[in-house]
Each structure stands twice: as structure tokens, then as C-alpha cells.
């Protein structure tokens, strides 16, 4: 394995403030595979690419640039575990790099605040950094193969699109996350409309829960049709969506129809590395993870 790389860890909102169990799993697992995290003190909301950007694009660009400026000052690239935050940073960097006048506009907003910003730091999704380590290297870390576990992989949207501003070699039918899941010994089960949205973004989750839940349910139904043991994600907002939508829809139905454990990638990898449930926050889920854990061989 190559020497440890250090990144400024950008938390965002949903992860530290609603699903700290995911944050925990990231903090525990990443250093064990050679990725060091440094705190990005004083960072804020990214802000959300489909929400705040929809209300005031200049505000979105300025706040995103402030977060990137903090990483620039620390001398690291930003690493995030949320597709939304990732989308914001990728788009905000592209905007100021393609339009120098926008960079000047941001610098003007920063005047007197001691913030230097040249758009030098890159933004990476943690799954991108993990994938760069290589399947072979990562497989060496597996001590408890998750044989027999059927996983419904959910990539999410902003991790992949707009494809012109993303690092993946393909624009559609990606396989990198499936490869990362299968190195744990689990099986990534194909299902209908796998690359469909979770339904949370663009302010839909907040303003129109019935539509948002209905989109999530369509995906969950498709996963249930092929008998998955869990839905696997790499985004704190997709994670929230699948947890909350199942709970809300069950309440409306008056029956616990939707009980698919929602697992973040570092939790799955951590399990395969032999880590304990509590270290991975697997005991703090809205949808109980025990049925899935019971399927993992001792």
C-alpha cells in the first residue's frame, strides 16, 4: 500500500447532525486503509446543491468556496462522504475555474475575512479515494468475508452526474461500487432501475414528502423483488432518505412492510475487516440491522 494520504474531512449537515453513526464508521475505517482525516474546523453546510443553490446561486457559490478555502489553507484536498456535498464542491470548483469573473466575485465577498481562495484544493468523494487504493489491496484487509450477503447497491445521483465533471471512466452503467461491495465477499444483486434517484434531492424531501417517499419506495420495491438483505449507499442524504422513507411509509401503511437495513459503505467494509458493530455505529439505525447481521457467517 502507498503511504498514507491526508485529507480535510468535510462533514456537512446530515452526517454529523442526524447520522453520526456513519461519521463514526468513516473515522474508524478510513485510517485503517491508509486514509488520514484532518478536521476541517469551522466548516459549514456545503450548501446543498439542489436546495440553497436553487434559492440563491451566488450564496451557494460563496459558501461552497469558503469551505474549499478552509481546505486550501490547510493544504489538503477535501474529502466528503455525501454525494450532495460532493456535487456542490465539484460544480463550484468548475464554475470559478471556467469563469474567472466568478472567482473575483467570490473573493470580493470574502474581503476582510482573512479568507484566501484560489480554487487550488480538489474535492474528492471518499469512495473515489477508496477505489483508488485498488481492489486487490483492499481485499487483503478482509478478515471476515460477508459470504452470502445480498446487497442492493445504490450509487445516488450527484456522485455520477453531470458525468462531464466527474472522474469516472464510464458515464453510465458504473461498476466501481459493485466491485467495492463484492471484495467484501458479499454479492451485489442487480435490480430494476438501479441508477435511479433516491428522491431526496432538489428540496423534494423537505417540501413534498409524499412524492419523495414514493420515489424511494419504487427503488425499495425493486430491491425487495430480488431479495436484498440491505441497501448500500455512499451518501448521507440518500442514507437519510432510505431510513426515513421506510419508517414514514410503514407508519402510513400501518404495517412494517419496509424493513431493509440501510448500510453505508464504510460500515460494510468495516464488517468485512472484522470490526465490531458499535465501532461502526450499526446499533444506531432506524431500520434494525440485526436481520442482515444474522446472515453474516461467524
Amino acid at each position: 500500500m502507498t503511504e498514507a494520504q491526508t485529507y480535510s474531512f468535510f462533514l456537512g449537515c446530515v452526517m454529523p447532525n442526524r447520522f453520526p453513526n456513519i461519521e463514526k464508521s468513516i473515522r474508524v475505517v478510513l485510517p485503517k486503509i491508509g486514509i488520514e482525516l484532518e478536521e476541517l474546523e469551522g466548516a459549514s453546510c456545503c450548501p446543498a446543491p439542489g436546495v440553497i443553490r436553487s434559492f440563491s446561486e451566488p450564496t451557494w457559490l460563496a459558501i461552497a468556496s469558503r469551505n474549499l478555502a478552509l481546505a486550501e489553507k490547510a493544504g489538503h484536498d477535501i474529502i466528503t462522504g455525501c454525494n450532495g456535498c460532493y456535487g456542490t464542491f465539484k460544480e463550484a470548483l468548475l464554475e470559478v475555474r471556467e469563469h474567472p469573473d466568478r472567482l473575483k466575485e467570490v473573493q470580493k465577498v470574502f474581503k476582510g475575512l482573512g479568507l484566501k481562495y484560489k480554487a487550488k484544493a480538489e474535492a474528492k468523494h471518499l469512495i473515489e479515494v477508496i477505489y483508488d487504493i485498488g481492489i486487490e489491496e483492499l481485499t487483503k484487509k478482509v478478515t471476515r468475508p460477508l459470504t452470502g450477503l445480498k446487497v442492493g447497491v445504490h450509487y445516488g445521483c450527484h456522485l455520477l452526474k453531470p458525468s462531464k465533471n466527474r472522474p469516472w471512466k464510464q458515464t453510465e452503467r458504473h461498476t466501481f461500487l459493485d466491485e467495492l461491495v463484492e471484495l467484501t465477499g458479499a454479492e451485489s444483486v442487480p435490480y430494476k432501475d438501479k441508477f435511479m434517484c433516491c428522491g431526496a434531492g432538489g428540496g423534494v424531501r423537505g417540501s413534498n414528502a409524499p412524492v419523495s417517499n414514493d420515489i424511494a419506495v419504487e427503488k425499495l420495491d425493486n430491491m425487495m423483488d430480488v431479495g436484498v438483505d440491505c441497501v448500500l449507499n455512499v451518501c448521507s442524504f440518500c442514507h437519510l432518505q432510505f431510513e426515513v422513507a421506510q419508517a414514514q411509509v410503514n407508519k402510513e401503511l400501518g404495517e412494517k412492510k419496509y424493513q431493509i437495513p440501510v448500510i453505508y459503505y464504510t460500515q460494510l467494509l468495516g464488517l468485512a475487516m472484522g470490526l465490531e458493530l458499535e465501532e461502526l455505529g450499526l446499533h444506531q439505525h432506524m431500520i434494525k440491522t440485526q436481520p442482515m447481521l444474522d446472515k453474516i457467517p461467524e
Binding site: 445521483c157 452526474k161 428522491g199 434531492g201 432538489g202
Partner: peptide, 12 residues
């Protein structure tokens, strides 16, 4: 106007 989830599929 507020029903778009910004999934970017149309853009792609």
C-alpha cells in the same frame, strides 16, 4: 418547478 430532485438524468 419545485418537484425536480436534481438527479441530472435529463441533462445527461
Amino acid at each position: 418547478l419545485w418537484l425536480c430532485a436534481t438527479c441530472h438524468t435529463c441533462l445527461e
